[in-house]
Design a protein around this nucleic acid. Structure first.
Length: 430
RNA sequence: GGAGACGUGGCCGAGUGGUCGAAGGCGCUCCCCUGCUAAGGGAGUAGACGACUUGAAAUCGUCUCGAGGGUUCGAAUCCCUUCGUCUCCGCCA
């Protein structure tokens, strides 16, 4: 959510920043709404001030026992009543219009974000690891002999439909091991606080992080109104909603392993085979809440935390900075990490780390007070995957595949697998 | 799920229709006094929004006593809805 005062003060800068995203100027519409809104507020408040003054006189008249004056004033204010109600309703309507518009405008990109229209203009910042030479055409994860019994799309479809999977046996165990491993690294080495929270949330939470009001069709809602979180960014970031933190409390860093639910509306036909794109998946998420001056550096730190997981798993990856035309709704700057998938012969997104500045903080009224300061300021928020567990499973399986149909698993996972080091062609942990 | 109670400023806590944005206490800030493992006296101490202003301050106004709506000339006080907390019962991992 944008600061209407900032737009009022410098509409040209606002429009220029929107322009970088490929959006046309919005400040004329916004300022027109704002002016109308303020005019209505003034009208409404003036009328109310008069009514309030009259009401006080009525009280005084009654105290004095002046019945004539009392009745005269009563009639007068009664008449003004409906007029005030109408003015107040108008003022509220204008205000709601402006708020609704502002809530649907995306964040402004950071100055250091490369400009571009779409994903083709994203810039690779970093590349790590060398894709393994398999000596044959590598298989996709769902084709691997070792996972044939442990990754069942047909049965899942019978129960739930497309874009679901049932993992079992060794594959399910490796999936679980990955999540445990990620959480352990984040909590013991990256100084993140582990959180286990709700996956069902209210409208307010989804509005706060930006999924609502614009992207309601991307998420699922229960019959009684709860939303199923599309990412635990929603839960983790909203921990600080409506609060004023003290300066020494910052930064706050959270991590959580949770289920995520996405309707994948609009992605019909994309990534339909395998478990790359599911309605329900697990993700280890990272969220940071920082002072404004630290948020940009925090993005680099968070990116490193995510990259570190891949490095320990010995999975080749590259990191991109998204261009102005490709960053998400709430982000000022986004780093996408793409892992090497030999079966697809390409890099695929496995993490996305974003700094949101005060965009989410304004929506959820999350503030902090500097030592000695009187007025609180908005915090800055960041979120990133660390990592998507299902996609990481895919990467581990595809990169570890052997010619004989077995899979060799990364050494850091062995302790989570009872010392086992791979999956046999028959699908057993060995 | 059933029955009931409650939700007031940073905290505790008064206030059941008329100068209540709200007594009192605690905490905090400033000043004075005193002098040492402390105490006493005084003053101050919510926020959002709008108008004015280059900006800020000051000033004026509106709103806010969980949230939203209603009754009334007037509501923290009455009514409805809703969210939350607590107690008892039921059920359950």
């Amino acid at each position: 959510m944008h600061d209407i005062r900032a737009i009022r003060e410098n509409p040209a800068a606002f429009d220029a920043a929107l322009g970088k995203r490929g959006l046309s100027a919005m400040s004329p519409d916004i300022l027109a709404l704002d002016e109308a809104r303020r005019a209505k507020i003034t009208a409404s408040e003036t009328a109310q001030a008069e009514a309030n003054a009259a009401a006080k006189q009525i009280g005084a008249a009654k105290a004095k026992g002046d019945e004539d004056e009392f009745n005269r004033l009563r009639a007068l204010t009664a008449e003004a009543k409906s007029q005030i109600a109408a003015l107040d309703a108008e003022a509220k309507a204008e205000d709601a219009k402006l708020t609704d518009l502002l809530m649907r405008i995306p964040n402004l990109p950071h100055d250091d974000v490369p400009q571009g229209a779409d994903e083709n203009y994203n810039v690779e910042m970093y590349r790590w690891g060398t894709p393994h030479e398999h000596g044959y055409k590598p298989k996709e994860h769902f084709e691997l002999t070792a996972v044939q019994g442990g990754m069942d799309f047909e049965t899942a479809a019978k129960i739930s439909g497309s874009r679901f999977v049932i993992l079992s046996g060794a594959v399910a165990r490796v999936h679980r091991a990955l999540a445990q491993f990620m959480l352990d690294v984040h909590t013991t080495e990256n100084d993140l606080t582990e959180v286990n929270g709700p996956v069902l949330v209210r409208d307010e939470a989804m509005l706060g992080t930006g999924q609502l009001p614009k992207f309601s069709e991307d998420s699922y809602q229960t019959t009684n109104g709860w939303w199923l979180i599309p990412t635990s960014e929603v839960t983790l970031t909203n921990i600080v909603s409506g609060t004023t933190l003290n300066e020494p409390d910052l930064p706050r860093r959270f991590t959580a392993h949770s289920l995520c639910f996405r309707s994948e509306a609009g992605s019909a036909g994309r990534d339909t085979s395998g478990m790359l794109r599911q309605h329900q998946f697990e993700k280890v998420e990272m969220v940071s809440v920082t002072k404004p001056e630290h948020s940009r550096a925090e993005l680099d730190r968070m990116t490193k935390c995510a990259e570190g997981i891949l490095e320990r798993l010995d999975l080749p990856y590259r990191t991109l900075v998204l261009c102005t035309g490709d960053i998400g709704f709430g982000a000022q700057r986004t780093h996408d990490i793409e892992v090497w998938l030999p079966g697809q012969d390409t890099y695929r997104e496995i993490s996305s780390c974003s700094v949101c500045g005060d965009f989410q903080a304004r929506r959820m009224n999350a503030r902090f007070k500097r030592d000695g300061a009187k007025k609180p300021e908005f915090v800055h928020t960041l979120n990133g995957s660390g990592l998507a567990v299902g996609r990481c499973l895919i990467a581990v399986l595809e990169n570890g595949q052997q010619f004989d149909g077995s899979v060799t698993l990364p050494a850091v996972l062995h302790p989570y697998l009872g010392g086992k080091t791979g999956i046999s062609a028959q699908g057993e942990l060995v």
